[in-house]
Design a protein around this nucleic acid. Structure first.
Lengths: 148, 148
DNA sequence: CATCTTTTTTAGAATAATTCTTGATATTAA
DNA sequence: TTAATATCAAGAATTATTCTAAAAAAGATG
């Protein structure tokens, strides 16, 4: 029972050791937390979720774990302006939509392929290796509320 | 002589008062600084540039002025991850390219029109009113250096 | 012009997120 | 087991930014 978590754990273990890192209970819990509820929590939010099952963990450790997960590519940092960094376990290339009313963050699929495909008029000579797309507006839930 | 600065000043004056704000020597100088050298400086960098002609200005004032300029729409804030906010006096819709080698920031034209035109597969119900595109990579200058 | 009002500036304190430091603890290797 | 290394944890430190409160400047009014 609970094959999903076992499989997830195997991926984590493999990926960590590929980066010369050890699998620890803390990393596992932090990773599980991100995978279980994929709503782009801040480090602080992750901290309070993890504390529920591991009350002795410290915020510094959560930051450390998140950093390692980002380093080994299992987790992405998501930033909007200078607000707290959020963490995202969706590895597919995607952008983010921020609802200015409820503050929720939604993943938005990007057209696969190179950034050039976005139709950007990139002058000669720029080599792009990362693309970051952020949208701001009103999400469907808030939009609906407003109409009524 | 110096018609450009006079014209610029007139625009600033008009725009400020449209927002119920006064034209001050500090705001004028901060705005001029951004318009004169359009390289996306941080507040701190603006501060040190402004100090050259106005040695008594304080950093808080620079922050205040920048905030007002942003409020009244003459200046845009530009963020990359959680680094210091940068300020940009280019009002045309555009994205930003960050060179990971020299740290320079370049404006990148976006295809005019709605965000949907970027080819984003936006699910039904999202109303977008702001689009933010950041690219990361190597700029032409650094690319050329590397080849040789 | 003198006075009153409002806005702006300023210096320094406060804040918030994150990183750093250092010693304790756990894990692996020998 | 012992040694070596990696990780964790608690709190201090850092950094960018905002807040606060008082002084200065600008504009309006009589």
């Amino acid at each position: 029972m609970n094959g999903i978590k076992n499989q997830r754990q195997a991926v984590l273990d493999r990926t960590l050791s590929r980066s010369g890192l050890r699998m620890t209970r803390q990393r596992q819990t932090v990773y599980d937390t991100l995978m279980d509820q994929r709503d782009h929590p801040t480090a602080d939010e992750v901290f309070s979720r993890v504390k529920r099952t591991m009350p002795t963990i410290s915020l510094a450790t959560v930051y450390n774990c998140l950093e390692k997960l980002v380093d080994c590519g299992l987790v992405r940092q998501v930033n909007r302006d200078r607000e707290s960094t959020r963490y995202c376990a969706n590895l597919k290339e995607h952008g983010h939509f921020y609802c200015r009313q409820c503050g929720s963050v939604h993943d938005i699929d990007l057209p696969s392929g190179q950034p050039a495909d976005l139709g950007l008029a990139l002058p000669e000579g720029f080599r792009v290796d990362q693309l970051d797309v952020n949208l701001r507006g009103v999400c469907p839930e808030c939009g609906a509320k407003q109409q009524s």
